[in-house]
Design a protein around this nucleic acid. Structure first.
Ligand code: FES
Ligand code: FES
Lengths: 140, 140
DNA sequence: CAAATATAAGACAAATTTGTCTTTAATTAA
DNA sequence: TTAATTAAAGACAAATTTGTCTTATATTTG
């Protein structure tokens, strides 16, 4: 569904968002410890997301990663597109060059339903809702 | 969503099923021409599916691939599991070691909806319905 | 300013997926 | 029975994804 890079990115961002609510920047080591993701690989992903404006970083002592945007404004959709690109939301389920109703594959009608659900999940989830879920889960 | 191998396998099987309804075995070259898949790679995938009992093959002149099962009995689900394994129907959307409601990831509730739709699509699609769609599409 | 700390960047490496090619084995038909 | 045909098997290769490591750069704090 999502690439490993995307899974790690989402988990790392959720951790950064959660810690950020306490007003703290989070160093890459802490992020990866809490998100349980490989450190160097995750660092590379986060650097890319910084370049793309999804989150911010600061070098030096007491530096780390943090998010200035309103968490409710960062949709999961944006994160996925930033890391994996928009293809997952558009491409044909059977790998045809393009997905369109004019020249559909044998699975098109049913696949569109699945893809629409995926899209809805990503549009309606934000860093805010993800952090909420994390916190809820911990309290169970 | 599915691997390339899986996409090719589904498309090849659909072609073989469709041609098979005319009572014909289909050689690997024709399969790949009609399905627009790479020949050697597709051959390998089909050989694996033969070993797993999804379809049949015959060597020698006038040989090729064919399906003895009732097309309505071959669910897309079985094909996907044969090629990609059952993980896609079970695994956590954020890549946690296991997906369960007891220790859910931040996306669990919403992701289950998507995965259930995917599952439903694969359970309710069969080689019969796929061939039907192909034929319908051609006649439009 | 100097030393310590933390991200940035990019080369490098491993693993997996995707794809090709050659040789072998089976089957058919003349 | 022989030649032609076709799938089977497996070695090999390319591309992509995943992951590590080293060096550079920026920032803070004393
Ligand atoms: S054409 Fe295949 S999903 Fe639309
Ligand atoms: S735990 Fe992540 S989807 Fe269920």
């Amino acid at each position: 569904m999502f690439s490993k890079a995307c899974e790690y990115g989402i988990r790392a961002l959720t951790i950064i968002a959660k810690e950020g609510e306490k007003g703290q920047k989070v160093g890459i080591k802490d992020v990866c410890k809490l998100a349980d993701t490989p450190e160097s690989f995750t660092a590379k992903i986060l650097q890319d997301l910084v370049r793309k404006g999804i989150l911010n970083s600061q070098k030096g002592p007491s530096g780390g990663f943090y998010i200035t945007k309103d968490l409710s404004e960062v949709a999961l959709y944006d994160i996925v597109v930033a890391i994996d690109g928009p293809e997952v939301f558009r491409k044909c389920g059977l790998g045809l060059a393009e997905c369109n109703a004019a020249k559909p594959c044998a699975l098109h009608t049913k696949f569109e339903v699945v893809r629409n659900e995926l899209n809805a999940m990503c549009q309606t989830s934000t860093l805010e809702t993800l952090v909420e879920q994390l916190v809820l889960d911990i309290h169970n």
